[in-house]
Each structure stands twice: as structure tokens, then as C-alpha cells.
Amino acid sequence: MVNFKNRDIISIHDFSKEDIMHILKTAKRFKAAPAPGLLKNKILASLFFEPSTRTRFSFESAMQRLGGSVITLADAKTSSSAKGESVADSIRIVEKYCDVIVMRHSIEGSARLAAEVSNNPIINGGDGANQHPTQTFLDLFSILETQGKLKGLNVAIVGDLKYGRTTHSLAYALGMFGSRLHFVSPVSLQMPNHVMHELKKMKAKFTIHQHPEKIMPKLDIFYATRIQKERFPDPVEYEKVKDVYIITNKLLTKVKKNFRILHPLPRVNEINYEVDTTPYAYYFQQANNGLYVREALLALTLGKI
């Protein structure tokens, strides 16, 4: 039996397959049957030193749906961190007022440091370009929900693979579960070497592509991400590739029946609106799953399930 009481949720690297399956099963329970009152008298401190909409709302909503309450930073600009207080000191103070902390901070490794100084569990809601583990858990939950398994799937991860932290963690987790990965991106935004190094170490199967068309018929999951214009050193290069990564119904003519499109959102123009009404679109359900996954993580780390 996996025990999550008081455990920190910092990085996907801290979790085994068994751990991840336990989180996903718990989330499934919450999706099937709400548990109001489970976290009664528990307080979540929601420390978003960086702006967030979906992650913050879904954590705060998850806590309140389970009967707990939330204390929060109104605006990072008015917090003590803006006065120059260190992350470690902020956490040492806030942990006294709550039972669990979810935090987002632009500095990489800030959540790891917070976990080292806090006696209460820390949940990483994103530390700069490094980790965003709860996004990975909700991505995996959505893949498991639509495919019934995490092993042996063909998953394309598409878009900005160089800077997109969600793609790195997802690739690592799917590699661990034994899915085949197809990295589709412009050459300048390819998956970084260190991610491929980790995948090779665990003998995960992956291939690199620049265009998605040819692999569409064999895919189970298409995980799209945003390509930001400002990431390109040369705007001409951006103009050349921008349309290649836009999903339209035309691209979906030869896909399998179980094929689903996921996206961590917000989308800008990667997925044409016409795709929303196809049976393949799953990104809004995916975002909704964030709620159940975060309910599961709060209940598990507080030792209430």
C-alpha cells in the first residue's frame, strides 16, 4: 500500500509507476463520487508568486469541494516576497497557518527548497521551466481514461518541446509506463538532450519528426502544445513552420477511432475551433480532470484517504 501522508509533490522524478497509479485511481474515485467534508477543518495555503488561472482555480476549488478552506495571496506583487523575503522564509512562516501548501514560483527548484524547510506537505504548482507535476498527473489521468491503459500507446507530443516543461515530464512518465513517443517539432524547438538522455537510460522508445501527417494513422494520443512566436530567433522561421502545427479536421481524416487530442491549454491557434466538435477533442475534459487529480493529491498528502 502506497502511503502519501505528508509526502511532497515536487517532481515527476520522485514517483514510481505504482505511486502514479495510486494517484490516478484515487482521482477516479473522486470523479465517480464527490466527497464533501473529507477535508473539513483543513487549510490549504495557495501561494502563487507567479500568475496562474487554471492550476490555482482548480486547486482552490478542489480544496473547497472537499470541505476544506483556502488562504491565498491576493497578488504576489503585494506579498512579502516583493519586499525581498526569501522563499525559504516565506514558507517557514506560512506553513504555521495551514495544513498543506500549493506554490508556484518562477525560480527553478524553489518548490524543492520549500519542501526541505516545511513540515507540512508542499505541492509544486510549477517552478519556472522545471516541473509541474500535477499537470502531468492530469495528463496521464486523461490518457488512461480515454485509452484504458498507459502502456504500449503511440503518443505524439507536438509543438514547443524545447521550452515546454509539461512535455518533458509527460515524456518521462509515458516512457516509464512503456508507451512509444513521437516528438514532433521544428528543429529549433526539439526535445532537449537531457530529456532524451533520461528516456534512453530507461530504454523508452521514441522517434523525432518535423511533420505530423505521416504518423497520424497510428497515433492514440496527440498532445499539442503552444508554439510561441517569441521563441524563434528568426521570425522568418516562425512564418515557415507555424501552419504545420495547426490541427484542422483535414489532418484528422485517417486517425484511429480511439484517437484523442489533448492540450494543456491555453491554446492560441494550435487547434482550429472546427476540431472542438469532433469526437477526438478531449482538451476541455482534460482540464476538468485537473480538479479530481488535485482533490486526490490534497486528500492523499493530508492522509485522509
Binding site: 517532481s11 522524478h13 527553478e108 524543492r112 527548497l113 522545471n130 537531457h194 538522455h197 537510460k201
Partner: peptide, 15 residues
């Protein structure tokens, strides 16, 4: 020991 990326930082997790 594997590959040329030897060192991983515990905090930022970069190699």
C-alpha cells in the same frame, strides 16, 4: 556515468 551529461542538480533538475 552514462553519456556525457554527468551532473544533475537536485534543485533545478537540469543536467
Amino acid at each position: 556515468e552514462t553519456g556525457e551529461l554527468h551532473m544533475r542538480c537536485w534543485y533545478c533538475e537540469r543536467y
